[in-house]
Design a protein around this nucleic acid. Structure first.
Lengths: 335, 335
DNA sequence: CGGCTCTATCGAACCGGTTCGATTTGATCA
DNA sequence: TGATCAAATCGAACCGGTTCGATAGAGCCG
């Protein structure tokens, strides 16, 4: 590999002039610029990003940290960020923590070690230790999905209260009263907000929330399946199930199918968040979806703004909260 | 951040001794080792990975390059690789080319620039230019999924001919004769092999392959949908459709549902490769799946072997081809 | 023509490690 | 006690860039 010194030698100028020509061409004379240009072409010089990062103390990489890159929600956001970053000569490094806080932390530390220019982070931690860890990072960070109380960073996400409330209201309008809710982990902001949207809408409508109808699905497949089973074996069964995310709702659908319940004839089902191939899942699940493209776009712009503009770096953190969208399916029937 | 020089000063030894102590403790005396250990703890020293990579000419990162991280096939492999790499103090950097060859190339180049220790690559290119590009990379590489003729690297994948043949035989046994096949891109090894498995099995069974029943689905959703529609509007319709991958098959299911065809009553459907939530898709699609865990495990071990052991680096490339597995669903009926 | 200001270029230090040949230390043996 | 040799440690060069103060030269003015 050709180095900058090869170029300098061939162009008969100093190494620092070549470096200057590359980073700030206006400050180098036309004649010299031309010599350097030719030399670069002749030896096929490409600057070593590692050496640049070391010297500059900053790389052109953006870290993307989520719990599950396979989730289409994160996938869409990743794509948006990647496209935008690529347009601005930055490169996205994707890491997947599998939802484990300690692994996420190790990955963030690694990315910091790589002197990434910025981080797009869907936080999975929530305790004081974690908050301090994030606070201590001296890098532009845009958090998304999970709003963690105490983290003073830009946040981009959806109105989860509204999401829960919308589906609840929909079911109420269809005449349902015995509505069950499969929750997510109580430490997750999305989970609690969605539940709050459900519970408050119920109360406001004067409908009692049956504690037996609130089961914990942990946002995971196994827990969601188990939670759904607990609902289905009750004698006084719910007439509708609301899944706090796609995973628990589809686990519930599976449980229903396995036990022989028909959806929506026997039990209605609704969920928050889309899933790949939802269009071929029978019945099509009624859902509230997040505007992933808009979220991704905001994350990308906000992060690049902080990275690129000097004053962008010191702007106070801001929250961007988007409204979710109702997507009717045929998994909810009138009772 | 504390540097190695801070450690050296505090421990009252030279910088090179500290470096040696870190990389090869056996060659440093107990006494000195202890001093250094204390100094490291005192100043909170952590080696800068960037500086290490620059000096060593090699980092502890592994590049994972695929066309679609959202595909559970790649997701499973990624997870296996990640777990194994983490156990061996390596860190996986995921990149997604969205199936675009030029972007994949840019990403590989970037990863090379990062001096990654090795690459797990699901190639998307196939022309001479691409082959030379890959050949020119002086880094351990394990290719998977697509076997590209001309690339002299380790390859890990499934027996795609067998996969196509298995499903074809299954449909033949159920009495189907008018079997349609939705293909993938003709430059993809997986696509041609699966088709070959289909076609030869048909011919061996003495069944003519109707050219109208071979449509190109490009392994994509839009092309698959269109291809399926072309099948469904024919007067002499197929009694069964075989999708060369999950995407085209599910696109076909969607097309069937939209036009009002019932599966499997009107048309049977089978596919190669699993998809998330296949268990709640009605009907459950009969499929042949790849052993993603085993594939991922082999990829991980092979790559780490080449990275770590000196002789591993020079071993001749090897192919690892696993047999796929038949997973019955209820999307194929006897005719 | 001397003095002054700009502009263009350069040299050296630096980022934070690794590596390897050279040197010191200490033990062993004649 | 001095020679020999292995083990321990060190110094300097290096990886490939960036940065900034210093310097040389060009252009302008009085």
């Amino acid at each position: 590999m050709a180095t900058i010194r090869d170029v300098a030698k061939l162009a008969d100028v100093s190494v620092s002039t070549v470096s200057l020509a590359l980073s700030n061409p206006a400050r180098v004379s036309q004649k010299t610029l031309e010599k350097i240009r030719k030399a670069i072409a002749a030896v096929g010089f490409v600057a070593d990003p590692l050496a640049q990062s070391l010297a500059r103390g900053r790389s052109r990489m953006i870290g993307f940290v989520v719990g599950n890159v396979g989730n289409p929600f994160f996938g869409d956001i990743r794509r948006e960020l990647e496209n935008y970053a690529l347009d601005h000569e930055h490169f996205v490094v994707v890491t997947d923590s599998s939802g484990k806080t300690d692994r996420e932390r190790a990955m963030v530390e690694h990315l910091i070690g790589l002197k990434t220019a910025g981080l797009a982070l869907a936080p999975s931690g929530y305790d004081q230790d974690y908050i301090e860890f994030i606070a201590g990072l001296n890098v532009p960070i845009v958090c998304f999905d999970q709003k963690v109380a105490g983290i003073e960073r830009d946040f981009v996400g959806s109105d989860n209260y509204l999401a829960g409330a919308m589906l609840t209201e929909h079911l109420l309008q269809l005449g349902h009263r015995r509505i069950a809710f499969i929750t997510g982990p109580s430490h997750m902001h999305t989970a609690t907000e969605r539940y709050r949207g459900f519970a408050e809408t119920m109360i406001n409508a004067g409908v009692d929330v049956n504690p037996n109808f609130i089961v914990d699905g942990q946002f995971t497949r196994t827990a969601g399946y188990e939670a759904a089973m607990r609902l289905l074996i009750q004698h006084e069964r719910p007439t509708a199930i609301l899944g706090a995310n796609n995973t628990v709702a589809l686990s519930a659908l599976q449980a229903m199918q396995e036990l022989g319940f028909r959806c929506p004839e026997d039990i209605s089902l609704a969920m928050i968040d889309n899933v790949q191939w939802s269009s071929v899942i029978t019945p099509r699940i009624t859902m509230v979806v997040q505007d992933t493209l808009a979220l991704g776009s905001i994350i990308a712009r906000r992060l690049m703004h902080r990275i690129r503009s000097p004053q962008g770096a010191v702007e106070p953190p801001e929250d961007f909260v988007l409204a979710p969208k109702f997507v009717p399916g045929n998994s909810c029937r009138r009772v």
